[in-house]
Amino acid sequence: MSKQTENTARRRARVRRAIKAVANGRARLSVHRTGKQIYAQVIDDAQGLTLASASTLDKDIRAEIKSGANVEAASTIGKLIAERAIKAGVKDVVFDRGAYMYHGRVKALAEAAREGGLNF
């Protein structure tokens, strides 16, 4: 395992450990970003189920965004994941940024999800 992969895995585990300590049974809003896309999932860790998901690869979203790798696309996904999570009956979540720093696209997605009605 390369040093960079090892550091990323360690950072991801540290964030996940902190989230599990404060979750109190709430679902987890997990974010994954790549160079071209951004993905979000609301996960119930107790049952191991994905309750809602959204990404820039969704057909209805793909038509309205120019690129999946910018802040505008992340905001769109944040609003969509909030809408789908509320539809699934989830209002309170814990934000899991993974190994990513809380700025840029990750921050835009989180703020849009809050505006969409999720509490975290």
Rank of each mutant, 00 (worst) to 15 (best):
A85D: 06
T34V: 01
L109W: 00
K36W: 14
F120S: 11
V106F: 03
A40W: 02
K91A: 12
A99K: 13
D92N: 14
V94I: 15
D44C: 07
Q37F: 09
A9N: 11
G78V: 04
E64I: 15
D44L: 05
G68A: 03
R97K: 12
N70Y: 10
S53T: 13
I19Q: 07
A108I: 01
A108F: 03
F120K: 05
T8N: 14
R10V: 09
A54V: 09
V71N: 12
L57I: 07
A110Q: 01
N24C: 11
L118G: 06
Q4G: 15
A23F: 13
D44M: 06
R12W: 05
R14W: 08
A13D: 14
A9C: 10
V22M: 13
V22Y: 12
S55E: 01
K3R: 11
D45H: 04
N70I: 03
T5Q: 08
K91I: 14
T56N: 04
E111A: 02
S67K: 10
K20V: 08
A52L: 02
A112E: 00
R114Y: 03
M101A: 15
D92H: 07
E72S: 06
S30V: 14
F120H: 12
V106G: 01
G78K: 01
R14C: 05
L49D: 13
A40P: 08
D60G: 14
R105Q: 08
E64A: 15
V93C: 11
A23Q: 09
R17S: 11
Y39E: 02
G89W: 10
G117F: 08
H32A: 13
G78P: 06
N24K: 09
L80C: 06
L49N: 07
T50R: 08
R26V: 05
R10D: 08
G78T: 04
K66A: 11
I65K: 05
K59E: 15
G68W: 03
V106H: 00
G117M: 07
L80P: 07
D44Q: 03
N7F: 13
M1E: 15
T34K: 01
A113Q: 01
K107D: 04
L29H: 08
H32F: 11
A73M: 00
G117S: 05
R62A: 13
V94K: 02
L109H: 00
E115L: 08
E72M: 04
